[in-house]
C-alpha cells in the first residue's frame, strides 16, 4: 500500500487518481501508523512553505516524515519541504536534504509554469525516460543543483528537477500531470525503488 500524506496542501487527489490509473493501491491519509507501515510514502503538496511547515510541526508530521525508512517521494512543495530551508516565508524545513530553496529572480515569467525538459537523468526513477523529456512544472522557488541532484532543468537558471538521498526521492515537477512520461516515473517509483 502507498500512503499519500494528507496535510491539507492542495491537490492531493490528483496523485491518488494517477496511482489508480496505474492500478496501484493507495490511500490519502494523515494516520501516523498507516503512514509508518506503508510500503512507500508520497509527500505531495502545493502551497506556501512557511505555513505548511507550521502545520506539519503542529501535527507532528514533521518528525514522522524525517523518521520514515521506506522509500518516500516528495512532489513539488513536498520536495522543497524535504530540504533545509526555503526563502518562501523564511521557512526552516525538514533538513533531510541540504538544499536551500530560493526564489527565481529575473525578467522571465514567474511562476515557472508549463512543460519543460529534464536532463542528466541519474536514477532508476527515470528508467525508460529519455533525456530531454517534457514534464509539467508550476513553481516560483527552486533548489540549486548539488550532489543529490538526479535530474535538472533550465529556466532562468539551471536548477534541480529531482533529488535523491538514502530512501528519500523528490521531484520539483508534477509526475501525476506529466502525461505518459510522468506515469513512467511514478511506475518506476513503485517498481524500481
Amino acid at each position: 500500500m502507498i500512503a499519500i500524506i494528507d496535510y491539507n496542501a492542495g491537490n492531493v487527489r490528483s496523485v491518488k487518481f494517477a496511482l489508480d490509473r496505474l492500478g496501484v493501491e493507495s490511500e490519502i491519509t494523515a494516520d501516523f501508523s498507516k503512514i509508518r507501515n506503508a510500503d512507500k510514502v508520497i509527500f505531495p503538496g502545493v502551497g506556501e512553505a512557511a505555513s505548511t511547515m507550521n502545520f506539519l510541526t503542529k501535527t507532528g508530521l514533521n518528525d514522522l516524515i524525517v523518521s520514515l525508512k521506506q522509500p518516500v517521494l516528495g512532489i513539488c512543495l513536498g520536495m522543497q519541504l524535504l530540504c533545509k530551508s526555503s526563502e518562501e516565508g523564511n521557512a526552516l524545513c525538514l533538513n533531510i536534504l541540504p538544499n536551500e530553496i530560493k526564489l527565481f529572480k529575473g525578467d522571465m515569467k514567474i511562476p515557472h509554469m508549463g512543460w519543460n525538459q529534464i536532463f542528466n537523468l541519474k536514477s532508476p526513477l527515470f528508467e525508460g525516460v529519455e533525456e530531454g523529456s517534457f514534464v509539467y512544472f508550476v513553481h516560483s522557488y527552486y533548489a540549486e543543483n548539488n550532489q543529490y541532484t538526479i535530474a535538472n532543468c533550465n529556466y532562468i537558471t539551471h536548477f534541480t528537477a529531482a533529488l535523491h538521498k538514502d530512501n528519500f526521492f523528490a521531484v520539483q515537477f508534477h509526475p501525476e500531470k506529466s502525461g505518459k512520461v510522468g506515469e513512467q516515473i511514478l511506475k518506476n517509483f513503485i517498481i524500481n525503488i
Binding site: 494517477a18 490509473r21 501525476e176 500531470k177 505518459k180
Partner: peptide
C-alpha cells in the same frame, strides 16, 4: 476528468 486525464 481528474480520474481519467494525465495533463493539467
Amino acid at each position: 476528468i481528474a480520474q481519467n486525464l494525465n495533463i493539467p
